[in-house]
Design a protein around this nucleic acid. Structure first.
Lengths: 213, 213
DNA sequence: TAGATTGTTAATCGATTAACAATC
DNA sequence: TAGATTGTTAATCGATTAACAATC
């Protein structure tokens, strides 16, 4: 066992980019090989970086030819764990939570939503994406029975931290947080904050700076 | 006019974090002042960095006391342009596009969706968040008439690049791209990629690596 | 063979952290 | 006053880019 390094988040993000681009190229032009220069120019990454990144996940290319596209795609999928099924519960059946439950775009990455919860009595027992919304009190039982390790958090900002801890106690190991709030992660739980407001802030700032507003 | 530097994306992201945290603290505990150490510990940023960042947006604190919470919040809002209204159109009335149209969480940042478009005839003329879905052909006219500068992109991956160029021709200056595809930005247009699959990739990788899966 | 592209090492650059004098 | 905290400069660290020998 030779060290098995952990990929850094920045590297993971670049790999996802490469994958998006190469899959598009592969689908449209049936390109069987691709060079680091091509990948670099489309993904806004330096070409040396691309070669380094691919070498980090043990993909090698051929001088004068480039990399085999199917091999690159497969290696990235394998390395990032897209091959495994990723079962998840959603907590918060508001607009965002319901949309994520219905969204088909994540199936490709193995995500499958198995339950959805909400505190509001008027939401409970409604149906979202073929799932009956359950009361938050059933959280522990459902997670225990299904063995789900991942939760998608789309509750209100003031409830987020409390719910995160309930999730941790119920056995959740990873939280994908869409709530615009930042809180300390419960011990042993990985939190990936997905604050859409950050993207919005960058847009707002650009528009404020743009000469012609 | 003394240089007027442009804030870097990383700084913008940190400012948004500070803001989330300070607003929460301000709301819950009515804390009137806050030190760089407190902000740092909650936002996972070094305390020197916090001081540097606040100084970059011309907020100053008082030794032994800290920073005035309302002043910090206001300065961040002002600097990032949250005070202006941000009118936007949404292109793609699928699950994600509709959810973003209905989502109330962005009002706080000044975002207002004024129109929503789709190519599918069965979507056109349906109502989403009090807006009638319009055919994509009306894009140019609506953007021209309203003077909207921002578009939220939630179409299918293979349509994304083409639509981005149509948006640019119609006068859009900033695109918030939720489509899991990366493409070259049309000249003079700012694209903020918001690839949710990147977050998902990080979760998948964590779970793959976690000892107990 | 000639030449394009990989893989990797070295050089540069920028971002993060540490340190500390100034200050309330 | 004493001591905590700011504001900023200097030191460190890591990430990015450049360069080039190896290679097909």
């Amino acid at each position: 066992m030779n060290h098995e390094e952990t990929l850094k988040p920045a590297l993971i993000r670049r790999l996802v980019r490469y994958c998006h681009y190469i899959q598009a190229r592969h689908a449209i032009e049936c390109a069987r090989t691709i060079s680091s220069v091509e990948i670099a120019s489309y993904t806004d990454v330096d070409e040396s970086q691309v070669r380094k990144d691919l070498s980090a996940i043990k993909v090698s290319g051929t001088p004068r030819i480039g990399y085999q596209t199917p091999e690159v795609i497969h290696a990235i999928h394998h390395e990032l764990g897209f091959e495994h099924d990723l079962l998840a519960v959603i907590v918060g059946a508001g607009h965002l939570g319901s949309a994520l439950a219905r969204y088909r775009g994540f199936e490709h990455y193995g995500l499958r939503v198995v339950a959805i919860f909400d505190t509001a009595p008027e939401k409970v027992n409604t149906v979202v994406a073929e799932l009956v919304v359950e009361p938050i009190e059933r959280l522990g039982r459902v997670i225990g029975e299904t063995g789900v390790k991942t939760a998608i958090l789309t509750v209100s900002p003031d409830a987020a931290e409390d719910i995160a801890h309930r999730l941790a106690r119920a056995g959740i190991k990873a939280i994908w947080n869409f709530v615009p709030a930042r809180f300390k992660a419960p011990d042993g739980v990985f939190i990936r904050h997905q604050h859409l407001s950050t993207g919005l802030a960058e847009l707002a700032y650009f528009l404020k700076k743009a000469p012609d507003n």
